[in-house]
Computed example of a mutant assay.
Amino acid sequence: MKKLLSIIALTVLFNCHNQAQTNPKQQAVIDAEPVVVPLKDGKARAYFASGCFWCVEAIYESVKGVEESISGYAGGFTENPTYEQSNTGRTGHAEAVEIIYDPEVVSFSTLVDVYFGSQNPTQVNGQGPDHGSQYRSIIFYQNEEQKKIIEEKKAALSKSLDATIAAEVYPFQKFWVGEDYHQNYERRNPNNGYIRNVSIPRLNRFKAKFPELLKDDEKH
């Protein structure tokens, strides 16, 4: 009887814990209808979270057809998040990038390949040495076609690796542009210890894996 009571008590405890961890604001973001970002001057926009945005920004900017990669925050429920707020993990956001690209040169499908091919796809809540929900992997869709592309590629990768893929799939809602000093950080701070030891090796691994996707001036 004591054993049974202990099991019941533990069950109640864990249920309460799970309920306490459920954030209705975050769930509302996950359940929302996606926001479509219209073409501007023939350029489309896509949004990805894959660990530190310094790394991800540089990776996408090396890809043919990508005009610009902007660091910021997405996937959360907090208005106007700052870097300091995001770092607490309490805003719901992840460090993310906005990719401005020419869909005549590079497809959304290829950008998803870049996404999965430039990270450790099985690492939960982080990439490399960066840990926490603010570094989690999220891939954002703006319509059902994009959602289907993401889910099919995620399922294929899971099958090929025989592992669970950590990336969450969210409807795109809003991208908050990060502070000025984060933009082009890797390019402007090549001697920074993190850049030298984490960002540049990650970029070089991507370049070695996908040489056919690189801009001409990135092939070195």
Rank of each mutant, 00 (worst) to 15 (best):
L214D: 03
N197K: 15
L213R: 02
Q183Y: 12
R202T: 12
N192W: 04
R188P: 01
P190H: 10
K174S: 05
V169M: 02
V177D: 00
K209E: 11
R196V: 14
N191K: 15
Y181N: 12
Y194G: 06
E168G: 09
P211N: 06
N189I: 10
N191G: 00
V169L: 01
F206D: 03
H182M: 08
W176D: 10
K174M: 06
L213V: 07
A163G: 07
A163Y: 08
F175W: 10
Q183S: 11
D180Y: 09
Y170D: 01
Q183C: 12
E168V: 03
N184G: 02
Y181T: 09
Y181V: 11
D180F: 02
Q173H: 11
N189P: 04
E168Y: 07
P190I: 11
A166M: 09
Q183G: 11
Y170V: 01
K207Y: 05
G193E: 13
N197E: 08
L213K: 02
H182L: 07
R202K: 15
P201Y: 08
Y194Q: 10
V169Y: 03
P171A: 08
P171Q: 09
R196K: 15
P190R: 11
H182G: 07
A166Q: 09
F175E: 05
L203R: 04
A208M: 10
N191A: 10
Q173R: 13
L214V: 12
